[in-house]
């Protein structure tokens, strides 16, 4: 087995505090330019929003960052190091994500799901496991403890042994976040964490993301719920047709006529809650 690098929390951050630095990222599928020339910085301990109408290329950009796609052009550096274009190595480097349509391991329990997240931070190999050597037993114990902590952190401590397919929708979203947190990330990428949630659950998700930031993590979040994103994020990027339209603090982006036009299409009508496209 390949040895995992040291936990990302020890990795150095560049002097100006830039954790993620994407420069001129372009993703071209044949003739389709899904993401064009997008640059983005995320600083340590910052919550950054990424908004844009459907088909704007938000998830494609996420996939470029996390190694699922190899960008056609541009560079991505993370904590001063160029990001390897393999999802697994991106996780080792300290960047974890959730999925737009939940991708849990459905026939594993909540606890097991989170423990899969611990995989990249444990090292015991087949030999250790077969002979139940001390390293294996210590890591199993630690992984179980850490996973239970994380379940408690997201509020699922009573559902550790529930199969994830039996969890309610909101809990599945939170479990996915716990699983991502189990990889000890420095930057958490959330792809529409409140999709399909009711207002109550959305408020809880907001609270959870603030608590994650308080742990010292940076968060990059894709959302359609404008109220959610503007109350949550320090900075917001608005992506339209694969390109950054506006970037800045929440209220600036919120009141930018181009953003409103991109979402609603009629510049004369101004509604505070321009929900969804």
């Amino acid at each position: 087995m390949t040895a995992a690098p040291a936990p990302a929390t020890d990795a150095p951050v560049t002097e100006d505090g830039v954790l993620l630095d994407a420069r001129n990222v372009t993703m071209q599928f044949g003739g389709l330019r899904a993401v064009g020339d997008v640059s983005m910085q995320v600083h340590a301990g910052e919550i950054v929003g990424l908004i844009g109408p459907n088909g704007a290329g938000k998830t494609t950009f996420f996939n470029c960052l996390t190694g699922l796609y190899k960008p056609t052009a541009g560079s991505v550096t993370f904590a001063g190091q160029p990001l390897p274009p393999r999802p697994r190595k991106v996780v080792y480097a300290g960047m974890a994500r959730t999925f737009q349509n939940i991708r849990l391991f459905h026939n594993m329990t909540a606890l097991e799901n989170v423990m899969v997240g611990r995989y990249c931070r444990t090292k015991s190999n087949a030999f250790d496991a077969v002979f139940r050597l001390p390293r294996h037993r210590r890591e199993e114990r630690e992984a179980t403890e850490r996973s239970r902590e994380l379940l408690a952190f997201v509020g699922l401590e009573n559902k550790a042994d529930t199969l994830s397919r039996n969890l309610p929708y909101g809990d599945q979203r939170r479990l996915e976040i716990a699983r991502a947190l189990a990889t000890d990330p420095k930057l958490l990428l959330l792809d529409e964490p409140t999709a399909g949630m009711n207002p109550q659950e959305t408020r809880e998700a907001e609270d959870l993301i603030f608590r994650i930031r308080d742990l010292g993590l940076a968060v990059l979040v894709i959302e359609h719920d404008m109220r959610f994103i503007f109350s949550l994020c320090d900075r917001v990027y608005c992506l339209v047709r694969g390109e950054v339209l506006v970037e800045g603090a929440g209220d600036i982006v919120q009141n930018d006529p181009r953003v409103i036009e991109a979402y609603i299409g009629a510049p004369t009508v101004v509604e505070e809650d321009g929900n969804d496209a």
Partner: peptide, 28 residues
């Protein structure tokens, strides 16, 4: 013993959803 270890969990994760397993840092 392999089945009840991080390796076994990784295997089941691959069977359940290989892409998600890879994205969670499992060396698929």
């Amino acid at each position: 013993n392999l089945n009840r270890s991080r390796i076994g969990r990784g295997w089941v994760a691959i069977r359940e959803d290989e892409l998600a397993a890879e994205a969670m840092g499992v060396n698929t």
